[in-house]
């Protein structure tokens, strides 16, 4: 079973993602409510893939992405974003994000992305 790390500061989003992923046979390796925890948990848990919210307190998803990429070049990170954050997404793509979904996204498209990347 593929292991996913969910990084999002909103409890609702984490719960939603957890439910969606579990339904399609992913294992939730862990959850992080801000960027720095995401980095810490990534190093600790070595998940197969990460879903990363862009706007988070303490450390943004973008910075967390950069740190994780510096730690593990082959990290697979999917950004979760909202309309209007084009500039951030662009930077994330440059920094090594494998893909991104725009909220509100369709459940199946998220699953398709994850499956394609894994």
């Amino acid at each position: 079973m593929k292991r996913v790390l969910i990084a999002d500061d909103a409890m609702f989003m984490r719960a939603t993602l957890k439910q969606q992923l579990a339904k399609h046979g992913f294992e939730i390796a862990g959850e992080a409510e801000d960027g720095s925890i995401a980095v810490k948990k990534y190093k600790e848990l070595k998940p197969d893939i990460v879903t990363m919210d862009i706007t988070m307190p303490v450390m943004s998803g973008l910075d967390a992405l950069k740190e994780i990429m510096a730690f593990d070049k082959s990290a697979k990170i999917v950004m979760v974003t909202a309309l209007g954050q084009e500039e951030m997404v662009k930077q994330a793509v440059v920094a090594g994000a494998r893909s991104f979904v725009v909220k509100p996204y369709k459940e199946e498209s998220l699953i398709t992305i994850l499956n394609k990347l894994l």
Binding site: T81, L83, E86, V93, S99, F100, S109
Partner: peptide, 17 residues
């Protein structure tokens, strides 16, 4: 791109990257 995937321009950028 698929309809409704949003931010087509950034997706295109990502493909080029």
């Amino acid at each position: 791109f698929e309809d409704g995937c949003e931010m087509e321009n950034i997706r295109a950028f990502s493909v080029v990257q």
